[in-house]
Design a protein around this nucleic acid. Structure first.
Lengths: 119, 119
DNA sequence: TGAATATTTGAACAACTATTCAAGTATATT
DNA sequence: AATATACTTGAATAGTTGTTCAAATATTCA
């Protein structure tokens, strides 16, 4: 029997069809998720956010972001392995810098939108 | 003794000072991380991406995103508790939709940038 | 009221992740 | 060569997270 919801549910069905057609491929999905995952840790986000201000060595990054040098180093490795940052040796020091500007834009957008929210 | 790195290291130090001044506050950092964390799971990202196409009920979402109804429901709860989506009862169904357009923009940017990459 | 459909929920379990600590490598200085 | 500084790495551990399964709730319809 036709009830008041039929129209709305038909729309849902049409939306589902469109959504199914436009779904992200397995590899695209995995790549986008991986980026978000890397940015989901406070330590790593701090590092990326700090490097957006300029190049720095591990000691300075640790000073800015807190924690131990070892923990920061582990996080730097993850970010580097995933192409978000890059490293260059300068004598005894390693100079870290941003490798993927796209990721910076995503971070900048997220921070900007956060500040828009009124709660 | 002055070596070739001094200038660069002095720059690092100045960058560190700037980075320290501009660091995200504890709560801002946590909120941005939380958003990224919610988007870092393939199931949840699929859900958000699907809802960007329009409103849908749990059954349709499960059809689009795969997995079991229970798993999708658990993920919907997390997204809802964090204000990313909202729900409305329509008879026996729940109609889920986007609550935070900012998050959609972040997802859209991430997907768009992914497609720019040449590798 | 009772059966059917749609969704939620809690508990348990397996998989993953971040940190710590100790030991390792790399470079510079003496 | 020996020491100091800067950083990395591996293993262990504790905490977190996603999924599953079974049971519960909510609504509709006969």
């Amino acid at each position: 029997m036709a009830n008041i919801d039929c129209e709305r549910l038909a729309e849902h069905s049409a939306t589902a069809k469109r959504a199914k057609e436009g779904i992200l491929s397995g590899t695209d999905l995995a790549r986008v998720c991986r980026i978000f995952q890397l940015l989901s840790d406070p330590g790593r986000l701090n590092i990326v956010y700090a490097l957006m201000k300029g190049e720095m060595c591990v000691h300075h990054l640790t000073e800015v972001c807190g924690g131990t040098v070892s923990a920061v180093s582990h996080q730097l490795r993850l970010l580097r392995e995933n192409g978000i940052i890059k490293a260059k040796r300068i004598g005894q020091h390693m100079e870290y810098s941003i490798a993927d500007e796209h990721v910076c834009e995503i971070v900048a957008l997220a921070v900007k939108h956060l500040e828009c929210e009124v709660d």
